[in-house]
């Protein structure tokens, strides 16, 4: 009915948050250890860039789901835009947004948190100097 509106609303909030964070963040230079043993100077990507991953997932998914809703006649390009409101099924629509919409947002956020965890492990590994015993291997 209109489940995609929940992740779309979340996308608006996280996009604003990413913009605010970006204006306050400073570049952090670090030394990373490459697999061939060499050391390279690099800049760590800020949290706002990682929040951008969530934004893109939410905006992209919402856009394609909006098209699917248009395909099924659940949204229309004229007022009131949502067929459920026109046909008096607002309560059902809100119930669907509460169940499917919230679940969509939760799943996407959970996947993003998982990505943050994996990225953190990769970052820590790259920042850690190889142990002398490992160098000969």
């Amino acid at each position: 009915m209109a489940c995609f509106l929940v992740p779309a609303a979340q996308a608006v909030i996280t996009s604003v948050a990413a913009k605010v964070m970006k204006s306050k963040e400073k570049e952090e230079s670090v030394k990373i250890y490459l697999s061939d043993g060499s050391v390279e100077e690099a800049t760590k990507i800020p949290f706002s860039a990682k929040l951008g991953w969530l934004n893109k997932l939410l905006w992209g998914g919402s856009a394609l789901l909006a098209f699917e809703h248009l395909w099924h006649g659940e949204i229309v390009p004229f007022f009131p835009f949502l067929t459920a409101i026109k046909s008096g099924e607002t309560a059902e629509m809100l119930a669907e947004m509460r169940s499917a919409g919230v679940m969509m947002s939760v799943l996407i956020t959970a996947v993003w948190v998982g990505m943050l965890a994996v990225a953190s492990v990769i970052e820590k590994r790259a920042l850690r100097a190889p142990k002398p015993a490992e160098e000969g291997v």
Binding site: K56, L57, W59, G60, L65, A100, M103, M104
Partner: peptide
Amino acid sequence: VGHLCWMFWGASLMWFIDAII
């Protein structure tokens, strides 16, 4: 191409919830 990846993965996750329901 990264933009396409985010878009399709985002939609896939959302449709996965639809599929579960």
